[in-house]
Amino acid sequence: MKPFTYARPTSVAEAVRDVAAEPGAVFLAGGTNLVDQLKLGVARPDLVVDVRRLTSREITDSDGGGLRLGAATTNSEVAADRRVRERYPVLAQALLAGATGQLRNQATTGGNPLQRTRCVYFQDVTTPCNKRDPGSGCSAVGGYTRYHAVLGVEPVQPDPDAPGTCIATHPSDMAVALAALDAQVQVLGPDGARTVPFPDLHRLPGDDPSRDTVLAHGELITAIDLPALPPGTRSGYRKVRDRASYAFALVSVAATLDVADGVVDDVRIALGGVAHKPWRAARAEEALRGRPATVGSFRLAAEAELVDAAPQPGIDDGNGFKVPLLARTLVATLRDLTPGD
């Protein structure tokens, strides 16, 4: 592991200044992903700035019936909070579907969405990877693509040598729920505070796969706000994985559904394990609003969302299985949330 300087400033503002001033600096919170990356040589910071004891570890009620999750709250604490369990089951379920009891005790609200892809090539420093080593190429194209993207990638097989190519997926379950909930991310940076809508926090690779989010260097998540859901809205998270427990998603669906008189009044859907970012399924939502809340409508919505899906060839037949799996998982999630079902 490369040597680094460790700093534990006394305020959030100081921590932000410290990281912003040093290009080789990173924030440390729970450390469950960063410490592993330090060991793997994927992360090689000069300065590690510990913010775990600086940001809030409280979950507070906000005006309008929402909740504010302090960045230092652990994944365990959020999943166990009675208000979260009652008002945002999709978030509690997503958190509980992720990692293990030990990891959830360590991982934080601010850190979880910023964890990095578990693409095997990203984590193996001996292979080319545009995300880890910009411009080196993408080893995943035509390789082991089982955990890789089918949405937000080019319809033809991407060029493995192009600097923008990256077919990695975002690994977080929590982030998929937060995208569906239209959570708001409170960010403090060297130039002040701003709010980022959660669905806009993560980005597609574009021409720079090394950047997972829109946050600038030195910007720190201080809290995540959950807006109140309309009364009567039901929500849930469904995850499909290779093992019954402790595995990343092959596909996952987070949804909120509000049905009035058998008709979809409001629906919000985010998909996990299938894109470089938690994938807000805007086409499916559009196809459902004002339509009967039936399995037939849900199937049409899934079709609408997946029309541009681009399965990636690769070892063991690639990841084409994800497209029908995602459609069925989306239908099943919405069916389970439909009243009277």
Partner: peptide, 13 residues
């Protein structure tokens, strides 16, 4: 008091 993975925790932190 909480179960924790000691391999992913830096002592200094």
């Amino acid at each position: 008091g909480e179960r924790t993975l000691a391999c992913l925790a830096l002592a200094v932190a």
